[in-house]
Measured scan of single mutants.
Amino acid sequence: NKEHILAQKEVLTPIEYEHYVKHLFDIGEITKELYIELSS
């Protein structure tokens, strides 16, 4: 869920976080809207 993803932002580097969010989007775990929101 969104809270879990945002928690990852605390422990990952910005680049790792971007890759993580992109991966979730690629596998269909999150919607495009959520992907855009989380990567901003």
Rank of each mutant, 00 (worst) to 15 (best):
T31F: 04
L38A: 04
L12N: 02
L24Y: 03
V11D: 08
L34S: 08
K9P: 02
L24F: 05
I15T: 10
S39I: 02
H19P: 02
E10Q: 12
Y17R: 01
A7F: 05
G28T: 01
K2D: 05
T31W: 04
N1I: 15
L12H: 03
P14S: 09
E10W: 07
K2Q: 13
I30Y: 00
L12G: 02
I5Q: 02
I27T: 14
E29G: 11
E16W: 04
I15Y: 06
S39Q: 14
Q8K: 09
S40W: 12
E33I: 05
L38F: 06
E10D: 14
K2I: 13
H4N: 14
I27A: 15
I15G: 15
L24K: 06
N1M: 11
S39A: 10
Y35T: 01
P14G: 09
H4G: 11
D26K: 10
L6W: 05
K2T: 06
L34Q: 08
E18H: 10
E37V: 09
I36K: 12
Y20F: 07
Y20E: 01
I5N: 01
E29H: 13
K32E: 13
V11P: 03
E10R: 04
E3A: 15
S39H: 03
L6S: 07
H23W: 12
S39L: 15
K9C: 05
I5K: 01
E33H: 05
L6C: 09
E18R: 07
H4P: 06
I27Y: 07
D26Y: 13
H19N: 15
L24G: 01
Q8A: 09
E37T: 10
K2V: 14
K22N: 12
I30W: 01
E3D: 15
H19Q: 15
N1K: 09
N1P: 05
K9I: 08
E10H: 08
Y35F: 14
K32A: 12
K9V: 08
S40V: 02
Q8L: 09
K32H: 14
Y17H: 04
T31I: 04
K22Y: 07
V21S: 01
V21L: 12
E18P: 01
I5F: 10
F25K: 03
L12D: 01
D26E: 12
E29W: 13
H19Y: 07
A7L: 05
L6D: 03
H4K: 07
V11G: 10
I15Q: 10
V11H: 11
E37Q: 15
E33K: 07
A7Y: 03
Y17F: 13
I36M: 15
H23M: 08
I27N: 15
T13K: 09
F25N: 03
Q8S: 08
L12T: 03
S40T: 11
K2L: 11
L24Q: 08
I5A: 05
G28C: 03
E16M: 05
Y20A: 02
K9D: 01
L34D: 09
T31Y: 05
A7W: 05
N1Q: 11
I27D: 13
Q8R: 04
L34H: 06
S39D: 07
L6E: 12
K2S: 11
P14W: 10
L6Q: 12
E18W: 09
T13F: 05
G28D: 05
N1V: 04
V21R: 00
A7D: 08
N1F: 13
F25C: 03
T31R: 03
G28L: 04
Y35M: 11
H4A: 09
H4Q: 12
K2A: 13
S39Y: 09
I5L: 07
S40Q: 06
E16D: 14
N1Y: 09
E29Q: 15
I36W: 04
E37H: 12
E37I: 05
I30E: 00
H19T: 14
I30A: 00
I15E: 10
E3H: 09
E33F: 09
E10G: 07
E18F: 08
Y17M: 03
L34K: 04
N1L: 08
E18Q: 05
V11I: 14
V11L: 04
K22T: 09
K2P: 11
T31A: 09
Y35S: 02
I5S: 02
I30S: 01
H4R: 05
L38M: 05
E18I: 13
G28M: 05
E29I: 14
Y17V: 01
K22I: 07
Y17L: 03
Y35K: 01
H19R: 13
T31S: 04
S39R: 08
E33G: 07
H23E: 11
D26M: 07
S39G: 04
A7V: 07
K32Y: 12
L34T: 13
Y20P: 00
K9G: 07
S39M: 07
L38R: 00
Y17S: 00
I27R: 15
E3K: 07
K22E: 13
T13V: 06
S40A: 10
V11Y: 14
S40R: 08
K9R: 08
Q8N: 11
S40D: 14
I36T: 11
E3R: 02
P14R: 14
G28F: 04
E29N: 12
I30N: 00
H23A: 11
K22F: 12
V11S: 07
S40H: 13
V11N: 10
E37G: 02
E3N: 11
I15L: 12
K9S: 07
I27P: 00
E10Y: 08
K22V: 08
T13D: 12
S39F: 13
E18Y: 10
H23L: 08
P14F: 11
I36D: 07
N1T: 10
K9W: 10
Y20S: 01
L38V: 13
E33N: 10
E3W: 10
I15A: 14
I30G: 00
G28W: 03
T13C: 02
Q8D: 02
E29F: 14
L6K: 08
K22P: 00
V21M: 07
L6V: 08
L24D: 00
E10K: 06
D26L: 05
S40P: 04
K22G: 08
I36Q: 15
L34Y: 06
F25Y: 11
N1E: 08
I30T: 01
E18L: 14
V21P: 00
E29M: 09
I30H: 00
L6Y: 08
L12R: 02
Y35H: 03
I15K: 04
L38H: 02
Q8H: 04
K32R: 15
F25P: 00
I30M: 06
P14K: 14
L24A: 04
H23N: 14
V11K: 08
H19W: 11
E3I: 08
E29Y: 14
L38P: 00
H19K: 11
T13L: 11
E16T: 04
E33S: 09
D26S: 11
T13I: 04
Y20I: 04
A7G: 14
I5M: 06
E3Q: 13
E3L: 06
T31D: 14
Y17I: 01
Y20R: 01
E18T: 11
L34P: 01
P14A: 13
G28Q: 07
E16Q: 10
H19F: 15
K32S: 14
E16R: 05
F25R: 02
L12M: 15
V21F: 02
N1R: 08
E37N: 03
E29P: 00
I27V: 15
D26W: 12
D26H: 13
E33Q: 07
E37S: 09
L12I: 05
T13M: 05
H23V: 02
E16K: 07
E33R: 04
V21D: 00
P14T: 11
H23Y: 15
Y17T: 00
I30Q: 00
H23I: 02
L6T: 10
E3G: 02
L12K: 05
L24R: 02
T31K: 06
H19V: 15
D26T: 10
L12Y: 08
I27Q: 14
H23K: 12
I36F: 06
T31G: 15
E3M: 13
L24V: 04
E16P: 02
L38Q: 02
T13E: 12
I5H: 08
Y17A: 02
E3S: 12
H4W: 06
D26C: 08
L38N: 01
Y35Q: 04
H19M: 05
G28Y: 04
T13S: 09
L34F: 08
Y35R: 01
E10F: 10
L38E: 02
L24N: 02
D26A: 14
I36S: 14
S39W: 09
